[in-house]
Design a binder for these strands. Sequence first.
DNA 1: CATGCGGGATTGTGATCACAACGGTGGTGC
DNA 2: GCACCACCGTTGTGATCACAATCCCGCATG
Lengths: 190, 190
Amino acid sequence: MHGEMVPGTSLTLRGIGQEFGTSMTPAREAARRLVAEGALTMSVSGRISTPELANDRIEELASLRGLLETELAVRALPRAHLALIERLTTINSTVAEAIRRGDAVAYIRTNLEFHRTLYLRAQAPAMLALVETVWLQLGPTMRKLYGRMRQGRPPDSHRLILAALRNREEAALRVAVRTDVTKGLRLLMT
Amino acid sequence: MHGEMVPGTSLTLRGIGQEFGTSMTPAREAARRLVAEGALTMSVSGRISTPELANDRIEELASLRGLLETELAVRALPRAHLALIERLTTINSTVAEAIRRGDAVAYIRTNLEFHRTLYLRAQAPAMLALVETVWLQLGPTMRKLYGRMRQGRPPDSHRLILAALRNREEAALRVAVRTDVTKGLRLLMT
DNA sequence: CATGCGGGATTGTGATCACAACGGTGGTGC
DNA sequence: GCACCACCGTTGTGATCACAATCCCGCATG
C-alpha cells in the first residue's frame, strides 16, 4: 500500500499473482486498474513499474491535494462534532509516534488516515475517491519525502487543523489544510 | 462514449466483447477500469450497468467540475494565444450547430471538446485526467440533461469564456467557467 | 389475480494456454 | 577493449474453459 515501494521498481503480473496466491488474471486486472489511476506506470510494451514523478507532476499533484482537500475539509467542518475531533487527536498522536520512531510506512499510513477520517465526514464520496487517486499517485514518492524530513518532530499543521475545527473557523481551516498538504511536497522538488 | 447510453442500462461482458469483436477478457478489463473510475456501476454480484446518479452525487460532481475546471482554465490562460482562441471559437460554432440540430450526442461531444481543447493548454495532465474521470461519471446523466434544454439556443457562457480569454481577465474567466460548468447540472437536480 | 418458488439460462470469475513482442546477456567482430 | 547483434528467457495479451452465483421466467398455489 501507500509508500511501501520505492519509485522505479518493476513488477510482473506473474510475480504479483504468485505473491497473492492467485493466477495472473486478478493480478492483471489490479495492475491495469492501478495504471488507469496513475498509481503504476505501463511502458509501451506493457511492462509495469512504479512511476518516478517529475517535478512538475509533483507540483500538479500538490495543487490537486490543495484544491480537493480544502474543499473536503470545509464540507466536513459543519459536521465535525467533538467525538470526531477527539478521534482525530488520537490519530494525530499515533502520527507523531510514527515520526518519533522514524517509521516511514507507518507515518504515511497514519497521516493519510488522519486526513481520510476528517474527509469522510464531508459525505462526498466522489471527491474523496479522487483524492485517494491522487494519494495513490503520490505513494511511491512520499516515501522519498520522508527521508528528508527526519527531524523527528511532527509538523504542527495538524494541530492547526484541529484548532480550526474546534473553533469552527473556515478560513483558518482552509489555510491549515492547504499548507499541511502542500508544504511537505514542495520541499521534495529540489 | 460520452452520453450515448441511458442511465440504468445493463451491460454484459460477453456482449461488450462481441460488440468489439474480441473475447471477454478485454471487455472485462475495460469494464473493471470504468467501474474503478465510476463510469459504470457494479452490483455486489458483479453485474455491470450504467449508473443512475442521485442528486447529491450530481451536486458533488458539479462542484468538482467547478473546482478543477476553473483551475485548469486559469492555468491555461497565460498560454492561450490567438490561434487557440480561434480554434475554440470554431469548436464553439459546431457546438451551437449541434444544439440547433438537436443532436444530443454531438452536443455533449463537441462541448467537452471545447473544454478539453482549452484545458490541454494548462499542461496539467493529472488534473485533466481527473476532470475526464468526472466527465465519464456524468456521461450517462448528461444525456438526460439535454432533454430538458431543448430551447435550441446555445448558452452564452462559452462566449463569456472566450471573451475572458481574449481580455486576459482571470477573475472573469473563473466566473465564466464555473457558471458554464455548474449551470446545466444544477437544473438537472429537480 | 397476486405471490411465492423452482429450475434453467445467463453472467462474472479465476485458471490455463498459445503466442507475439520485448529485454537482457553472452558472444563475436573490429 | 568496446560496440553490436543474435538468441533465449521472460513478459503481457487475448482466448477459452469450468464453475459457482445469480437472475429471470414461468408455473402452481392460495
